[in-house]
Design a protein around this nucleic acid. Sequence first.
DNA 1: TCTGGGGTCCTAGGACCC
DNA 2: TCTGGGGTCCTAGGACCC
Length: 351
Amino acid sequence: MFWKRAILHVDMDAFFVNIHLLDHPEDRGLPIAVGGNPNGRGVVASASYEARQFGVRSAMPSSQALRLCPTIKFVGHNWPRIGECSRQVMDLLAAYGPLEKMSVDEAYVDISEAADPEGVAFKIRAQIKRETGLPASVGLTPNKLVSKVASDFDKPEGCTIIRPGEERLFLAPLSVRAIHGIGPRTAEQLALLNIYKCGELADIDLSQLRLKFGKNAELLQERARGIDHRPVNDDPGQAKSISQEWTFNDDIEDENYLFDMMEKMAGQVSESLKKRNLVAHTVVVKYRWVDFSTFTRQRTVEVGIDSAAEILATAQAVFQANWNGEKLRLIGVGVSNLERPLGRQLTLFNS
DNA sequence: TCTGGGGTCCTAGGACCC
DNA sequence: TCTGGGGTCCTAGGACCC
């Protein structure tokens, strides 16, 4: 089989849970969830396959998970270990070709140069298990879009290969929600046209699709047909925004307490900016009221800033101009409009 | 029954300028 | 007195993803 383009998508299985099990083998076989406090406002980040049998899913409120599965064991995130394992997996993958990291537990690798891409797919999955002890699923197809679907097709520890020319047939029976970028809202819109499966979206008359989706119609249909020309991009580029937010266990209206929180968050945002050698021109404050309605208010400043004091002062000014004293369930501080500071280069030019 | 945290990208309207 | 078109920047919100 000749592969003009061979794109591998690697997706770690229940990553956070399986890292926990590496260090706590005694928990193997139990229903486990990594995530927030079930007595507070936490959600499930990752659930073991035993917990999933009870209907527990990621992004589900922890309290609901506890109700579905009263024997479930909640454990916290071990961020240092997660970072370590992620790095180990990514380093291993980078040896095979250009690597695009999508998150701690997911990446694309362009293995078009390999003599036998299908062999490489199996080899990589085995190598990850051997060297890290962690299970992964992989999808190999001619493009990113279909590989992403393929890696999810046979979890856990799957290896799904869709050969050139088979993309459209593979997608046809699957829900449109399987396509990366089609979420609940878009699926709802498609349902109004009686479209539920990729095959139906692939076959519908384009002019009908245009009525609802305008210039996006063409792209939407191409996706459903398994067409995707996006290259694997191994340059992550510079961050576009940095933020910190916090949901309170009990709704807060104490201004001093809110200011203390903002001070902590401004400090962390500042640290992150400095570590990346960036300055920000815009400060964003985020609020969420008790009824879950959410607002953001931002202010742009002429001179780029990175200090905790400047970020805090701007955030507090924005906050005070917009807060009516009502109870909040969340507050957040962030920055955007980021750039490299220019000071040094200018000095060099002048000398 | 309640709904985290950290991001990216897109759209739309208003201000402002030429 | 009536009233163009285009471009850029900023703000705010929303969809979506892991």
